[in-house]
Design a protein around this nucleic acid. Structure first.
Lengths: 136, 136
DNA sequence: GTGAAATCGGAACGAATTAGTCCGATTAAC
DNA sequence: GTTAATCGGACTAATTCGTTCCGATTTCAC
């Protein structure tokens, strides 16, 4: 019931990147300096976020990162899913049987719980987490 | 964003125990047989649940477990907290600074998220999870 | 056109938490 | 008082996560 540190760092990184949305491209090293996180860690987080389509990467000299979508259109659920995969409390939903499949009366109820949690996280936009002066 | 297997097993175990609520004491071995989980694992889960006050243990020959509270009064949040501790997505809320304390603009928003998730889980009683036994 | 620099992307190593297992202390019944 | 069955805690092994490093790609400058 606790998201991984990578996901936590991803939220911080996205929050920092959202502040440079208007300024164009930002390098991963610069994000590391601003957030105080280790540079390699930020690189790994950025890789996952880029693969998920939340960030747009521009390679080469003078390149950098930029938000692929407006900050208001990115929710906490998107960031968590980008780093940790689908929002699922249990692993028995995607093939990995929990060895009690035959007598597991709670399994039918997990999708409902998962969806409830996902909705709760989807209702939190990046703008709220970033704490920008323009929250509207 | 995924609860540990122990918590998953705890839910299954509590669900199985709720069926024996009227029958009185149930041994951990019997719960293991019914759920199909390894007996030592069930013992570990039962230990945590008992320590949290969700189960009442009776030692000695002929002893066993029984629900400390009615099934309707036990929520999914109670079980998760019993096994995994407080519902907190991030570890930076209880002293462990995340090394970006000075520039972490998202930290003030985590308690709200945690409370939202906790409420979502608290709204799911054990009776709903137990449901009717489905024989596959 | 060529060279060089800077960037992201993926892979490998190490550490930490977790899952599983075992043995001992306690307790009730006989 | 003895026996037997139970829970409780501690140890070991495994998986996953976090961190770090190196290579492929791309752009700018000359």
């Amino acid at each position: 019931m606790r998201l991984s540190n990578l996901a936590d760092y991803a939220v911080v990184t996205m929050s920092a990147a959202s502040r440079h949305c208007g300024g164009g491209r930002v390098s991963a090293s610069e994000l590391a300096s601003e957030t105080g996180l280790p540079a390699p860690t930020v690189q790994k987080v950025v890789s996952k976020l880029t693969a998920a389509g939340l960030l747009r990467s521009t390679r080469g000299a003078g390149g950098g990162l930029q938000l692929a979508r407006p900050a208001a259109a990115i929710s906490l659920a998107d960031i968590v899913e980008a780093v940790e995969g689908p929002i699922a409390l249990t692993a028995c939903i995607d093939g990995h049987d929990c060895a009690v499949d035959h007598n597991c009366s709670v399994k039918p109820h997990w999708p409902l719980v998962n969806e409830t949690l996902r909705k709760a996280l989807a209702d939190i936009p990046l703008t709220q987490l970033a704490g920008q002066r323009e929250i509207a």
